[in-house]
Simulated scan of single mutants.
Amino acid sequence: MSTSLYNPFQDLLFDDHFCFLSGNLTTERISVFPEWLMNHFQFGDERIEMMDKTKSYKYSDLELPCSPEVKDAFAQLDVKIQAAYKKGFEGMAALDEKLLFQWTGRIVYGLLYYEMVYERNRLQKLGEDFNLSPMLRERFGHFHLMLQSLIEPISFKGNKPWSIIVFPLKYSADIFSYRDDTVNLLFSMGVNGFGIIACLQDNGAIGEKQKDIVEKMKGHILHPVQFEELYARFHYSDYIFQYKPQYKIESDENGITIEALPIKKVGSKPLFGFWDEDIFAQLLANYWQVYGIEREDILKFQKPPLSFLENPYSKDFINPETIELPF
């Protein structure tokens, strides 16, 4: 990576004495999940599992070492996001995507940081070295560089490195729904009034793949079961994505410019692999289990897969008001 900015993935440096974003020495801390969000939905004492399911943390205990500069920058970002949040879907949809990237990225990176620390400590106890593949070092390093746009003169040119959508969503007022995939840098959040889905390092390819259904959604307030299906589509699309995003990174006296290069097919290899309905149905069943919907309900013999987004025959968008499931 052609930049002199701090990159913790170069030496796998995840230490409480160094700011997670700038690399400066520090004794300050910042919560992974914004405090106003935890207070509003009162989930600070609930627990979130790490990827291997053997370790969990209270949301309120997840904190990152940070410099005063970084803490202040995120505090200012939180003020903007909270103000937009109070205006509901219209407020969030009006935000610059760069702000949404920085805000969702802070949470996803925070969880990734904990995954790195947990895995390093686990391996150390076994007397083994902690390492990452060159591919993951590059992916996470690029993500970290982009997140530094909060504190450094970093701009994004042309095609954006992410797919981010904001849409109206009907939930009970006290429900907060959150999912992520830290390795693949995916984020979803659903609350009363709106939902957000973010693929933070796909160069817009997954958003492009799902643009037809996103267009059909416009003018509707999604039912939560539709939200779960939508995120499952984004998540599975990422799973079968067959190309590595590439970036043009330039640096001069004015700062760093990042351009996400359009992803082009090489030969006969498509951008996305085969969409396997069996695998997708299992993923979707994991998200729909709160409704008691199992994989066998999604895939039935001689019937098209169950969907709450599209009529399987006409491909028309299903009106959320016709869905009788609770929200």
Rank of each mutant, 00 (worst) to 15 (best):
K86F: 01
K86D: 09
K87L: 15
K87Q: 15
K87E: 15
K87G: 04
K87W: 00
K87M: 14
G88S: 10
G88T: 07
G88A: 12
G88Y: 12
F89V: 01
F89S: 01
G91W: 06
G91Y: 07
G91E: 05
M92C: 01
M92L: 09
M92V: 07
M92T: 05
A93E: 11
A93Y: 10
A93G: 02
A93H: 11
A94Q: 14
A94L: 11
L95N: 07
L95E: 04
L95P: 08
L95A: 04
D96C: 09
D96W: 00
D96H: 13
D96I: 03
E97V: 11
K98C: 09
K98S: 11
K98W: 00
L99R: 08
L99E: 14
L99M: 14
L99V: 08
L100Q: 08
L100C: 07
F101P: 02
F101N: 04
Q102A: 05
Q102T: 00
Q102L: 15
W103S: 00
W103H: 03
W103T: 00
W103A: 00
W103I: 00
T104C: 15
G105S: 10
G105H: 07
G105F: 06
G105N: 08
G105A: 08
G105D: 10
R106S: 09
R106D: 03
I107C: 02
I107A: 01
V108T: 09
Y109P: 01
Y109W: 15
Y109T: 00
Y109S: 01
G110R: 05
G110N: 06
G110W: 09
L111P: 02
L112S: 04
L112I: 00
Y113H: 14
Y113T: 05
Y113Q: 10
Y114R: 13
Y114H: 15
E115D: 10
E115V: 01
M116G: 06
M116W: 04
M116Y: 05
M116P: 09
V117Y: 00
V117F: 02
V117S: 10
V117Q: 11
V117I: 13
V117K: 15
Y118F: 11
Y118S: 13
Y118V: 01
Y118A: 08
Y118P: 07
E119Y: 10
E119N: 10
R120V: 00
R120D: 11
R120E: 14
R120S: 12
R120I: 01
N121C: 03
N121Y: 04
R122H: 06
R122K: 13
R122V: 01
L123D: 08
L123Y: 06
Q124R: 15
K125N: 14
K125A: 12
K125F: 04
L126F: 11
G127F: 06
G127C: 06
E128Q: 15
E128I: 06
E128N: 06
E128W: 05
D129H: 10
D129G: 01
D129P: 00
D129N: 14
F130M: 05
F130S: 08
N131V: 04
N131G: 10
N131M: 09
N131I: 01
N131W: 05
L132C: 07
L132W: 09
S133V: 02
S133M: 06
S133Y: 05
S133H: 09
P134M: 09
P134G: 11
M135L: 07
M135R: 14
M135N: 10
M135A: 12
